[in-house]
Nucleic acid binder design. Sequence first.
DNA 1: TCCATTGAATGGGTGATCCATTTAATAATT
DNA 2: AATTATTAAATGGATCACCCATTCAATGGA
Lengths: 253, 253
Amino acid sequence: MQFRPIHTRRAFEEICERIREQLALGVLKPGDKLPAERDLAQRLGVSRNVLREALRSLEMAGVLRLQKGVKGGAFIREGDTSRMNDVMRDMLSLGTISVRELSEARVHVLDLVVRLACANARAVDLDALEANVERTELATREGRLLDRLECSREFYKLLAAATGNKVIAMIMDSVTEIHMRFVYAKVASSGVAMARLAEKRRRFVAALRERNVSSATRLMRTHLESVQRMLEQDPGAMSLQVALAEVQPGIRR
Amino acid sequence: MQFRPIHTRRAFEEICERIREQLALGVLKPGDKLPAERDLAQRLGVSRNVLREALRSLEMAGVLRLQKGVKGGAFIREGDTSRMNDVMRDMLSLGTISVRELSEARVHVLDLVVRLACANARAVDLDALEANVERTELATREGRLLDRLECSREFYKLLAAATGNKVIAMIMDSVTEIHMRFVYAKVASSGVAMARLAEKRRRFVAALRERNVSSATRLMRTHLESVQRMLEQDPGAMSLQVALAEVQPGIRR
DNA sequence: TCCATTGAATGGGTGATCCATTTAATAATT
DNA sequence: AATTATTAAATGGATCACCCATTCAATGGA
């Protein structure tokens, strides 16, 4: 016989739960506004401070957006797919997952993403990818390394979107975000950069357009391997701390 | 020229960020205790209420664990891999992702997981899976359907763990959790149950043990298909609301 | 030695109060 | 009449001063 620990429910948990319940039941929908803090607190029979703790938590969870001023209030947000990135970052900071595990997962997820994108990419997705490659090429010619990096970030987002599955895309983004930080730190510190990036991208997108799964997956795999080699190149292994410590999770916009 | 919206930083955000920074830098580690609320608030130059908003958010994010009483305080947790589940649930509640996308993602992720488990499962993992199949068989014989469901949940967790990659495992769990809710709702309401489950599991684990990737993936795929058929079977499509509205995200333990 | 009591430290929670921002209504100006 | 200041109200942001319930080490009595 085993006893599970008693969980003393606290007011703010109850509140979060009720609001999430309304959400799950469809009573509350994105765009809806909750009653004003003073009002809602009274209705729930709790102090305004406690209610605010709950609202804060929901805001951090990406469920609410709080806006000041008359006509302001707590609004239900469209789901913020970037919350998963924050979870990943916290797990890494806490040492629950390792960089190795994350890199490995990224390789596998990317393989899946490429196969799905091959199968499902629409014309607009492919066009967007090609436009991205153009920008990458331009940034390369003009020596704007950091801009090119931004292009890379965007490239993977576009590729994720091309799968046509937002869950897969979300997962992909979460395993890519940290990786891009490492690349960024590397580029910013050593000025080293991937050779013939735009060219490789162009061939990859062409393979996608031909729905050539084996070619696309092979191109991506070899690219990932060369990036990995670049990252592991000499000047002092990029530290986890450097990559993580910059911008932290929070509320965007 | 474009202007990005100014983001008025609020005190609690600053606090969350500072603490996460300490975490990323390794100054704070799991098990460490933050100063008492009254003390920390004074040191940060904010009111205790605001500090509490920040601590709450970090608690909900799975970073902290708050404990009452003398010798209590805010402790840095081991990473809580279940936070990703909550994100997934919120995205679903908010309509950002659909059940269809989640199911599809699950099929693909499971395929990956099976392949990785085939490659990496250690003896202990396989033993745990076999023990789980035993329990499943027993529960089936004794007609304990809900217990058998609990076995299923555990089965997928063990399978995820067998990949040897906690990132993959976390992803797998997050796409499985909601799915299990649907199955649960189905079983609880209609009493219908998957036929020959234990037997199928037994054959699957045997394939894993033989490192027979094609056999294992095939067995899993056909099983998923039959589960899908069962879920779509008559009595009123399981509603998203029913599946989601029960227990909500929160702090465990 | 053991058990009950006590008290201090901690998080949980309240209520009153003020500030800064935002917006709409109103007044003043051109 | 149109435009521009001004004002006032509502909202979230933040502070302060309390009080309560829980926990646990220290104390003291049986």
